[in-house]
């Protein structure tokens, strides 16, 4: 791809550091202070902050705008972009706009189906899929053209990411899909939250065997569990989530007041286990509405201080 790193996240991964990213959900309103407060909690603890794009199909402040708010406070954003709500014309336009505003990392997804959201009566788009979106962003950067082949006045060079869910079915296809994402343009991967470490390791082993871990930086997903009820809810109601019974039992087995602390302890153990794995280049912490816990996790995991790099 681009010989020179375009973002700090890319630089950190390229120099072989173990990267730390975190997720930050924009507010259900126009108040930028909400995003700034979350940003403050993450500052200094992570290398980049993912900003979700109307996650779970609930209307929120746009990812682009929230990215810019974070950028203005010195944080490096990863703009998430889904193909659910915009056709290829709007996606390309927003990528050009985001780049013009200084956004350099993008994570390409298809997006949660709108029937999960607050406005299930909405029409979806899905003109292209996440694979095509990866390909589009790469082509815009490397060829300097839009999807029609038109030469762009200035090409947006972005560090391109995709997601992977090793816990979804059919299992054997998950590695094929990872290979396809890399072929389409993915330079880094952020995975679904890892609780089932055995399955995760098996997926990683298969990816390693095919040489995929040499071609892409994989950041493993981490989400602290808050309570027994939340754990059960995630295990049964959240699409694409795999929480083994022994984890549910472990969280349910401690007094209610200590469940969140147990959840953090579990995170730290998982991070330790993941760090040892060949082919894992970082973690991505999705502490949904618990951004205040991120600093603690990163510190306790011994991942401070974060490297200082200039791009």
């Amino acid at each position: 791809m681009n010989p020179e790193p375009v973002s700090r996240l890319e630089q950190i991964l390229k120099q072989g550091e173990f990267a730390v990213t975190a997720e930050c959900g924009p507010p259900r309103g126009a108040n930028a202070d909400v995003i700034r407060e979350k940003g403050e909690l993450l500052k200094g603890f992570v290398d980049a902050v993912n900003v979700t794009d109307n996650q779970t199909a609930i209307v929120r402040m746009s990812s682009i705008a929230a990215c810019v708010h974070l950028e203005q406070m010195g944080l490096e954003p990863v703009m998430q972009m889904v193909t659910r709500d915009r056709n290829r014309i709007a996606l390309q336009s927003d990528i050009l706009g985001a780049y013009s505003l200084g956004i350099r990392n993008i994570l390409c997804l298809s997006g949660d189906h709108q029937t999960f959201g607050s406005q299930p009566e909405a029409m979806n788009v899905f003109d292209i899929d996440s694979m095509n979106l990866l390909h589009m962003v790469r082509t815009m950067g490397s060829e300097g053209t839009d999807m029609s082949g038109f030469e762009l006045d200035e090409a947006p060079h972005m560090f391109i990411g995709a997601v992977a869910n090793p816990f979804a079915d059919p299992f054997e296809y998950r590695v094929i899909r990872l290979a396809k994402k890399i072929e389409a343009g993915a330079e880094f991967i952020q995975t679904q939250c890892v609780y089932n470490t055995e399955r995760f390791k098996e997926w990683l082993r298969m990816a390693r065997e095919q040489g995929l871990t040499e071609q892409v930086h994989i950041l493993a997903g981490i989400t602290p569990l808050k309570s027994a009820n939340a754990t059960r809810y995630m295990a049964t109601k959240v699409a694409g989530m795999d929480i083994p019974d022994d984890i549910i039992k472990r969280i349910a087995g401690v007094p209610k007041s200590q469940a969140a602390a147990e959840g953090i302890k579990l995170c730290l153990e998982t991070i330790q286990e993941l760090r040892e794995l060949e082919g894992i280049h970082g973690i991505h912490i999705m502490a949904i509405e618990s951004e205040d816990k991120v600093g603690e996790i990163v510190e306790e995991a011994g991942l401070l201080p974060r490297p200082v790099v200039e791009v």
Partner: peptide
């Protein structure tokens, strides 16, 4: 449900 042509999404279970 998402008209995906490059493989299943992460919600196939």
């Amino acid at each position: 449900a998402k008209k995906l042509l490059n493989g299943p999404c992460g919600g196939s279970r």
